[in-house]
Design a protein around this nucleic acid. Structure first.
Lengths: 148, 148
DNA sequence: CTATATTAGTTCGATATCGTATTAGTTGGA
DNA sequence: TCCAACTAATACGATATCGAACTAATATAG
């Protein structure tokens, strides 16, 4: 890697970190109680997959330790936003799925956050996001495939 | 915001979250003991600013609660990678600065991580990062300015 | 079949994160 | 000059995160 390439990737990941921090804080300002952005992310994942997912599948999708997923899912269960069913294919396992309360909950939060972001998006132009997205996807796929 | 714009920004921030998670895990695999990527980020910040920064300045730069910064800096101090000096301008305050060990430490970690990333960057092309960067910077600046 | 290795999920313990309250120092106005 | 409002940093407590060890179930080799 050339020095320039190193500096470029360094700056790239630095920006990723700052944007992540800022957007997480912004989202969490609109989440109830001590719900984390991680929990909200998992909930959205399950809402878009009504057939449910096992904790291990969620751990892989989010690249998180199993034990962190256990914790986050139990928080969501405590709020009755998800529930568990036994996994018919494997008695060691179980399936987490979104309850009927989850979809309106996620929609409402997304609505509020979008209202909050709307001036910013209008100001920058949607194209800024649209232009960045394919590059981010490519990098995400490559990073994801990189794991040894 | 149109529905399309909402979906676009949603996907954008989702990608940010996944890339952050993957890159953080990758970096922390190469950090000693239980050093976090956050601590490493602060250390790099101080290495590039030899005159030092107050904890509050660091909190603003990284958009973190002061109390989290206190903790992270104390971890870096325990490793003798930073030290504190009194702030001549304000006795309530103090200045954190990188010690002589910090620069070689940061360089070495960056070197190892760059080696690790090099096939990925070669595969994708540096341009993928270069193309994304200005958009990320624009979004970061806008988000940063948005804070009420 | 049975023993062994592997796998899904949890428990437990250590530490990171962060909100609230506190302490010490600074500032600005009467 | 004084004091009330403000500010920098920390102490403390609650909770999030995650590695290691554990339990129960499944897969596999013989």
């Amino acid at each position: 890697m050339t020095l320039e390439a190193e500096q470029l990737t360094y700056r790239f990941f630095t920006e990723i970190g700052i944007i992540f921090q800022l957007s997480t804080t912004l989202l969490e300002d609109h989440l109830p109680g001590r719900m984390t952005s991680r929990e909200f992310g998992m909930l959205g994942h399950l809402v878009r997959r009504p057939e449910g997912r096992t904790p291990l599948e969620i751990a892989k999708a989010f690249q998180l330790p199993k034990t962190s997923v256990t914790h986050s899912l139990s928080m969501l269960e405590a709020r009755s936003l998800i529930a568990f069913a036994p996994n018919p294919a494997d008695a060691r396992s179980k399936i987490a799925y979104a309850t009927s309360q989850a979809d309106p909950f996620v929609k409402e939060i997304n609505h509020v956050v979008n209202e909050r972001l709307s001036p910013l998006v209008a100001d920058l132009g949607v194209d800024t996001f649209a232009s960045a997205l394919p590059h981010l996807e490519a990098i995400r796929v490559a990073l994801d495939g990189e794991r040894d």
